[in-house]
Simulated scan of single mutants.
Amino acid sequence: MAGEDGIDAACQPQKCPRIYRRHRPAVHGVLAEAPPVLVMDLTGTVFFSSVAIGVLMDAVLTAGERTCVRVVAARPIRRTLQMLGLDPQFDYFDTTQEALTAPA
């Protein structure tokens, strides 16, 4: 979920709805299969907007208790979520490999 049009994109107002519409169905598609874990890798993120936060929170709300949402992210993103009081919603990891192999 990163890249030119990913949730790390510099979010101009006219671009944000398109980004959200692009990622929300992908997340919902994965969660429809009820996996035990969903890993959201934000390591390439250079701009963390409210749209990105919305995608993460939508994932948590959609996942419910059946799927653990894990976030791979650098300290600045973790700090942003902590400042917003959202950090308890996620399990944080430094690498995708750690997130994928940690016990559920």
Rank of each mutant, 00 (worst) to 15 (best):
Q97I: 12
A99Q: 04
H23P: 09
A74M: 13
A2G: 12
V37P: 05
T67M: 01
E98P: 05
T96M: 08
A104W: 04
F93V: 01
T80N: 09
A104R: 02
T96G: 08
R22C: 12
M57N: 06
V55F: 10
D8K: 06
V51C: 15
M40S: 05
L100Y: 01
A99G: 08
V37H: 03
V51G: 09
T96K: 13
L31R: 00
M83R: 12
I19Q: 10
T43C: 14
P17T: 12
L38Y: 06
I53R: 00
P36S: 03
D5L: 15
V72E: 04
F48W: 10
T43F: 13
I7Q: 03
G54P: 02
T67P: 00
G6F: 09
V51I: 13
D8R: 09
S49T: 12
R79C: 14
E65Q: 03
V55S: 07
P76E: 05
L84W: 08
A2F: 11
G29Y: 01
D5E: 14
V60G: 00
H28Q: 10
L31D: 00
A52W: 09
L42R: 03
V27C: 01
A34D: 05
A74E: 14
R79V: 15
L61G: 02
R24N: 06
I53V: 03
R18N: 15
E33P: 03
R22W: 13
P35G: 06
C11I: 02
S50M: 09
V72W: 11
G3N: 03
R70S: 06
A99W: 06
V71G: 00
A59R: 01
V72H: 06
R70F: 01
R21Y: 13
L56W: 03
G64S: 05
R78T: 06
Q12R: 11
G54S: 11
K15Y: 12
V72C: 13
V69C: 04
P35T: 05
R18L: 15
D94A: 11
R66I: 08
V71M: 01
P17S: 12
R22V: 10
D94V: 11
A2R: 07
I19C: 11
F48D: 13
G6Y: 09
R70K: 12
T96I: 12
D5I: 14
K15L: 15
R70H: 08
G85N: 08
M40E: 07
D91Y: 07
C16E: 04
Q82Y: 09
P13G: 04
D41V: 12
L61Q: 04
F90L: 01
R66P: 01
A52F: 10
I7A: 04
M57D: 03
C68N: 14
L31N: 02
R79S: 15
I7R: 07
M57L: 10
A99V: 03
V55M: 03
V51Y: 08
I19D: 13
P25H: 08
V71W: 00
P35F: 02
A102T: 13
P17W: 11
F90S: 01
L84M: 14
A34H: 07
T43Y: 13
G3W: 04
T62E: 08
T101V: 04
R24G: 04
D87F: 05
L56C: 02
V30N: 02
Q89I: 07
S50V: 12
A99N: 05
D87H: 10
